[in-house]
Amino acid sequence: MNNNLLEVRGLTKSFGALLASDDIDLEVREGETHAIIGPNGAGKTTLISQLAGNLLPDRGRVRFAGEDITALSAPARSHRGFARSFQITSIYRDFTALENVMLAVQAHAGSSFRFWGSARAERALQEPARRVLEEVGLGARTGLPGGNLAHGEQRQLEVAMALATRPRLMLLDEPVAGMGAEETQRMVGLISTLKGGKTIILVEHDMDAVFSLADRVSVLVYGRIVATGTPEEIRTNAEVRRAYLGDEVAA
């Protein structure tokens, strides 16, 4: 009936008295890059966590490719094509960059109840992992422990791990958070190469990044989606300007 890859209906989540997600409806079309913006504390990460299966909603449904996945765990969603990057960098600090990505490949390449052969030596894990690291621009850093990479490189590694699971839908939670101008540019370039091929939900504070990447934008304020539209519509929407963009535009 439509080309929505993801449909969210009436998603509600509260923490005590705080309503973090308030009856959220959201549609994400196959192949689009859909940005979610909003002021601090609007509930963006809470929303992403519920979409990724890390957090169960109190009410509401989530449908993915026509299937109701509301009750599925994060690993189960990963196997249906979800991949997530975290706002606060979440990598294996003691494993090398290559091992980080190889684990993501391994999770989607047959059984891991194999007790004998060396996983590091498996070419079927190594080769895809190296390709993905090249793709995100970490081709020269494969042997370094994740914890020794620069901040921006760790963010790239996050995206590499998400990509290595060959997802249909990527949930990117503030991929350029804490990055310098040059690193931000590189990350925006990387995400724009993924556009079209993958469906992307992008949570981001950096408005330049949002307006250059997003096909559509939803604005989240106090747990509610107050507007959804093209970047141009959002830019000119009076309610959005008042609730959120006003300060940024003025500044």
Binding site: P75, F86, A119, R120
Partner: peptide, 23 residues
């Protein structure tokens, strides 16, 4: 050092990440 060993070490090192990549 096997696949199995890598998974239990990964889960110890970072459980949220391990679940997100599909384990």
């Amino acid at each position: 050092n096997s696949r199995f060993g890598m998974v239990i070490r990964a889960a110890r090192s970072n459980e949220a990440r391990t679940r997100s990549i599909g384990f």
